[in-house]
Simulated assay, not measured.
Amino acid sequence: MAEIRMKVNGSVASLEVEPWVSLLDALRERLGVTGPKKGCDQGACGACTVLADGVRINSCLALAIQYDGREITTIEGVAHPLKEAFIRHDGFQCGYCTSGQICSAIGMLAEHAAGMPSAVADSGALSEAEVRERMSGNLCRCGAYNGIVDAIMEVSG
């Protein structure tokens, strides 16, 4: 067992974890933070996406011990216009993927603003095709992609 401390949604948390415990399991099972969902548990669906020091990650692929001393933000700690935009544009149906979608979109907007390249980048402005490419790691089984893209496009300006 190793003792780790991390700031989760603004509050410092200390917990003991085995070295093999994923960040997702530590958040959900040890800290009771249930926004990130366990979908595939292999990094393919994005339902577990959280922000680690502002960068989007699949928490099912991250070991909790790697994030000792770091700041983790889940949907519970997000205060961002994307939440309201998802509602306005019907960017969710069952809601299972929504927390990961929103956290991923926040990270994606930061990546775009920082000039990180994209396979379909057109110009300085974020295009619909680029949003779809940059968000391709987050799946929605209900098919609410049009609403998700519309919400992101609205917030991106």
Rank of each mutant, 00 (worst) to 15 (best):
G124D: 09
N146Q: 13
I87T: 13
A13S: 11
G69A: 08
G157P: 06
S123P: 04
S11N: 15
A62N: 03
A114L: 05
I75T: 11
R88V: 01
A79Y: 11
C60F: 07
G35I: 01
I57L: 13
G115R: 13
A121D: 02
V78E: 06
F86W: 03
E18I: 03
G35K: 04
E16I: 09
G137M: 05
F92T: 03
S127L: 00
R141F: 04
S99W: 07
I87A: 15
G147K: 11
E18S: 15
D53G: 07
E16N: 12
R134Y: 03
E84H: 13
R141I: 01
L23H: 08
G54H: 01
C142L: 05
S156C: 06
A121F: 02
T73A: 04
D41V: 07
T49R: 11
G77D: 02
A64Q: 12
V55H: 08
R132E: 00
G69N: 07
D25M: 11
I57K: 14
A85F: 12
N138S: 12
G157I: 03
G43H: 12
D53P: 04
P19G: 15
L24F: 07
P19C: 06
H80Q: 05
I65V: 15
I75V: 15
L31I: 06
Q66V: 02
L63I: 04
I4S: 10
C94V: 10
I87C: 04
Q66R: 15
